[in-house]
């Protein structure tokens, strides 16, 4: 490969890298908007759910054993999606932030053992893949 072919290959790579960081920041901004929409929708769902729940609870002392009571329990489990999704999105947003920073400052990638890049990324805190009730362990 001669010098002209090397430069023709290197230039596009540099250009691509330069365009990735802004796109990552845009993705981070979009994630923030998605989070805001989910939070807003979840808040409205919770408010409406509370009204419906109170109505059912006041109608019967034994609401827990009724089909409506079981539906309330199922809905309360499902409504916890907001907490789980919120934490997942926060993790994704932080990863994007760190990746964009690394693209801006490539020298940070050059640590001998690579620990400086790995250390900046957040730990995975949500392993759930669905809304199935979680395990319980008493010590």
């Amino acid at each position: 490969m001669n010098s002209s072919s090397i430069s023709s290959v290197a230039a596009p790579e540099s250009s691509v890298i330069g365009s990735v960081a802004p796109q990552l920041r845009l993705a981070q901004s979009e994630l923030t908007r998605v989070q805001s929409i989910i939070d807003d929708a979840s808040s409205q769902l919770m408010t409406s759910f509370d009204v419906l729940r109170e109505g059912i609870v006041q109608r019967s002392d034994n609401w827990v054993g009724t089909p409506e009571g079981q539906a309330i329990c199922t809905a309360m489990t499902a409504l916890q999606f907001q907490d789980m999704v919120g934490q997942l999105m926060s993790g994704v947003s932080n990863r994007i932030h760190v990746a964009a920073q690394l693209l801006d400052s490539p020298e940070a990638v050059g640590a001998p053992d690579g620990s400086s890049t790995a250390a900046g990324f957040p730990r995975e805190v949500v392993a759930q893949k669905d809304i199935t009730v979680g395990d319980i362990e008493l010590f």
Partner: peptide
């Protein structure tokens, strides 16, 4: 939401009585 054995061990060592993974079922 955390369910790793490592975090559970840290919780136990800190003095927690138990570890419940979200989402929770109200009756449970």
């Amino acid at each position: 939401t955390e369910s790793s054995d490592e975090m559970k061990s840290k919780g136990r060592e800190a003095g927690a009585t138990g570890w419940l993974v979200k989402p929770f079922d109200p009756n449970r």
